[in-house]
């Protein structure tokens, strides 16, 4: 590991300008009533005090993509139009863990060339999260707020300056030309204090151990009809099947593929975009058959997946970012579902 450095806060603009020479830089910015990863023109737009964004960084890797263009019997894969590499600046531990899970998921039996192409074209400057939201519970899952792997650089807000730790040779190159101060042991201690303080801010928690087994064992548990049909688990309304939970989930990866022909009909494009197991059509097969016609079955499927009990295993399981809780108009809370399954 290369020695850690320090970046004075007033030098952040310079740092971002420096990164922009080589990368398209995306980072958290404030909108009317939420935060979102957007292209950064100026460091002033950056909001390193963000709790969470509505949509996770998966929007850069796996949202909606054109896969190929076809013409008659022939097809050609579309070349990436990106001229520069892109950099995600200020990624929190929950989201970084989710990206690492997707890295495993998309390289298991089959290597997904579309995901990997974008992923290989990206760099990550992570940020230790010190603004814990009311829905966050990464600490209880071991997915935050500390970060140990997966970043090129890691920033920690120490008050007047950022501690910069290097995680890769690409990260080292990012700061090489900058004349940064070396960090000393008291800076590293300050970082530990920040993390400790963050740990005291968590309101929610979830005990993951064995939940995958429990969810599969109790398929008829009352909690499924509470969230799927009646409402009433910790004050929630019944599920809307709107799909928000899975679309904002950083580890949900299911997608659909469709051909969009031009009016000539013999040529067009093939696209893929995120799908959701919460939608009625997701499990529909020929002649209108459907494996999950009941709302209850769909919401149970999603929860089971987040507990690590579905096809993605732990590579599509929950990282505790709390987005599904924030995005659910019915106030369904995954941590309450877990408690209920455990009989707590």
């Amino acid at each position: 590991m290369k020695p850690a450095k320090k970046l004075m806060k007033e030098e952040l603009g310079q740092f971002v300008d420096h990164l922009s020479k080589e990368y398209l830089v995306y980072g958290p910015v404030a909108r009317r009533s939420d935060f979102s990863f957007q292209e950064i023109d100026s460091a002033e737009d950056l909001r390193f005090d963000y709790t969470t964004t509505t949509i996770p960084p998966k929007k850069f890797f796996h949202h909606r993509q054109t896969l190929l263009r076809y013409s008659g019997e022939d097809y050609s894969e579309l070349e990436s139009t990106l001229e520069k590499r892109f950099l995600l600046l200020g990624v929190h531990s929950c989201d970084l863990n989710a990206i690492l899970r997707h890295d495993r998921l998309f390289t298991r039996q089959f290597h997904d060339p579309y995901y990997l192409k974008l992923r290989r074209n990206s760099a990550i400057v992570a940020l230790i999260c010190t603004h814990i939201g009311n829905s966050c519970f990464c600490a209880s899952l071991g997915t935050g707020p500390t970060i140990r792997e997966g970043f090129d650089l890691l920033l920690t807000d120490l008050g007047n300056e950022y501690l910069i730790e290097v995680g890769s040779s690409e990260g080292q190159r990012m700061i090489e030309e900058l004349n940064l101060q070396k960090a000393n042991s008291s800076d590293l201690e300050k970082k530990e204090e920040r993390v400790k303080l963050a740990l005291t801010q968590f309101v929610k928690s979830m005990k993951m151990d064995g939940l995958n087994q429990l969810a599969l064992k109790y398929l008829d548990h009352e909690v499924w009809s509470l969230i799927g049909e009646k409402g009433g688990l910790a004050g929630c309304f019944a599920c809307l099947s709107c799909g928000n939970c899975s679309l904002v989930c950083p580890t949900c990866y299911c997608f659909e593929v469709a051909d969009i022909p031009e009016l000539s009909l013999n040529q067009g494009v093939r696209i893929r975009e995120l799908d959701s197991c919460q939608l009625l059509e997701y499990a529909e097969v020929a002649l209108g058959g459907n494996f999950r016609r009941d709302r209850k079955a769909r919401v149970r499927q999603w929860m089971t997946c987040k507990f690590g009990g579905a096809g993605g295993g732990f590579d599509s399981s929950c990282v505790g970012c709390g987005r599904c809780i924030n995005a659910c108009p019915s106030h369904i809370d995954i941590t309450e579902v877990a408690k209920s399954l455990r009989g707590e």
Partner: peptide, 8 residues
């Protein structure tokens, strides 16, 4: 499906 999907 819902408009929420398109929003997200």
């Amino acid at each position: 499906h819902s408009v929420c999907v398109e929003c997200k």
